[in-house]
Each structure stands twice: as structure tokens, then as C-alpha cells.
Design a protein around this nucleic acid. Structure first.
Lengths: 139, 139
DNA sequence: AGTATTTTGCAACAAAGTTGCATTCTTAAT
DNA sequence: ATTAAGAATGCAACTTTGTTGCAAAATACT
């Protein structure tokens, strides 16, 4: 059983060609992808609607997580193994957005520091996005 | 001269009815607003296109700043006085998104902690969005 | 007040996202 | 292996969101 198949089965999703393909795209990408990035890669194979629905499903199952952006183009990234296996999804690493190449990267090794909220606020999730120049572009 | 007028003049923008109205909406809102929120309030007074262009102008002048979201609905919030007066805009406070009322709030008093990036990365901006329950909804 | 410049509204368009439904594919049980 | 039930897909139509060019109107400056 391939890697994509086991990811799908572990999330109790039926194994279909489009899901395998989209998951493959994520696995071979080294950065976060927007809906459009995926559409460009497989619009001739699968319908736009299928891509929307697949991303939605993956999100719900915690296979991918989404990264807030400032440009109305939410990006999605594969959750790492810890992420996927833990029942409740918890995404606690910093995301990096490179101004030069435009890529969004998960900095898995950089944990988000906690902050103290004012009295009366209850924290559930915390997101941190850093922008600048990435390792590759800086060279 | 009204407050909105002086904000506009300080940013060397001409004072027009639509700009005054939209700025007023921000001043009387106690939370961040999406384009849609503004459109709902004044679509019968001003054209959709004008609202887009006004928000764009305000952003460029640093009158408002935008807050990344996870739902393809970028929100905008008024910059506080320090923000506006300083030539180079620097938005260094945490944003809070309430799951209950859906409002996005600026926690002006909560500074974003810095993080150490891996070697080779250069930081330019940093954004932090915390979600949970706000003071009002928690009661 | 008059003119140059900026802003606005309109129209047309492009892109992004959603919904219902018929068809096809998966799964699981015989 | 076959088949029936349920799930996923593709298509079409539609809604919402965002963009662009241009003429008309408003603003700012002298």
C-alpha cells in the first residue's frame, strides 16, 4: 500500500484517483500550496469543484492545515506525522512567507512562543506568519 | 476640522465624502472589518469599486493595516496614533479572532514576541493571530 | 472663480467559490 | 466475484469577489 493510500485510509477516507493525485502534489511540494497552485497542476485531470471539495475534506480530517495570509489566497500545507496522528489537530510551528519567491514554508523546528492575553480572553489556537527572505533566495 | 478630516489631510489625501464615511465606519467600529462589512454599511451610498480603491489607498498610506485570516476574507483595522504618525508603518501587536462573535480585535497592548529563525532566513514582518473566546463572549 | 488633477461611478469583465443533480466509482457484504 | 448502498465526481448554472478603462464629477490650488 502506497504512502498516500495509507494516509487516506488512516483518515477513513475512500481512496480515489483525485485524492491520491492531490495528496501526491502536497507530498512532492516543499512548500505550502494555494488552491490555485493545485488547480494549475491538475485542472485538466480533475474538475475545479473536486479540488475544492478535496481540500475541504483534507482540512476536516487534519491531513492538511491552512495558513493565514494577507492576500486572500489561503495556503495549505501537509501536516507532519505528529499532526496527523494526534486526534486533535494542533499546529504549533511558525510559517514563513518569502517575499522573493513567494513560497510559504513550514518552519517545523520553530515553535510559536506563547503570549499572555489580557484578562478575560481564552486562547484556543495561535498562528504566526513571518515574512522576509528565505534561505534559498538570500544566497 | 473633524477627526477624519485631519487624518486624511495628514496623509495628504483629498477629503472626499466616501473617504470620510469609510473612515468614520472604522472609527466607530471596535473591531477589524472586512471589505464586505464596509460594503454592507454603505453600498447604497458608494460604489463597490470606490470601497475597494479607498481601502487600498488607506492601506498604502498606513491609515489601516490588514490582518491575515484563514478564510479568504482579509480584515482591516485602523492603525493607532503611533502607527499613523510614524512614517514607516510597523504593526507589532497581536490580533485576536473570537470564535463566538467572529470579531477580529487588535490587542494593542500585547506585543508580538520575536522568534529566532533558522540560519539563512531574514525576517521583515511578523504576524500573530490568536483565536479563542473574547472578553465579551466569555462572560 | 477657473483650471489641473484626483476621485468616483458605471459597465464590462475576470476570477474565485458554491450548489444541485445525474453519473460514476468505492466499499463492504454476500 | 457480484452486487447493492453509499460516497465522490463532473457538469452546469450561478453567486460572490475583485479588476480595469473611461467618462463625469468633485477637489484642491492659484
Amino acid at each position: 500500500m502506497s504512502r498516500v493510500e495509507s494516509i487516506l485510509k488512516n483518515s477513513s477516507l475512500s481512496v480515489t484517483a483525485s485524492r491520491k493525485r492531490i495528496l501526491d502534489i502536497f507530498l512532492s511540494a516543499n512548500n505550502a500550496l494555494a488552491h490555485q497552485d493545485i488547480e494549475i497542476k491538475c485542472a485538466d485531470e480533475y474538475d475545479r469543484v473536486t479540488i475544492y471539495r478535496t481540500l475541504q475534506t483534507f482540512l476536516e480530517k487534519g491531513i492538511i492545515h491552512n495558513i493565514p495570509t494577507t492576500d486572500n489566497a489561503v495556503r495549505y500545507a501537509l501536516c507532519n506525522d505528529a499532526c496527523i496522528s494526534s486526534g486533535h489537530h494542533h499546529d504549533n510551528h511558525v510559517h514563513f512567507l518569502c517575499d522573493a519567491c513567494g513560497k510559504t514554508l513550514c518552519l517545523d523546528e520553530v515553535m510559536i512562543p506563547t503570549v499572555k492575553l489580557p484578562a478575560g480572553y481564552a486562547m484556543k489556537e495561535i498562528n504566526m506568519v513571518v515574512s522576509g527572505t528565505c534561505k534559498t533566495c538570500k544566497k
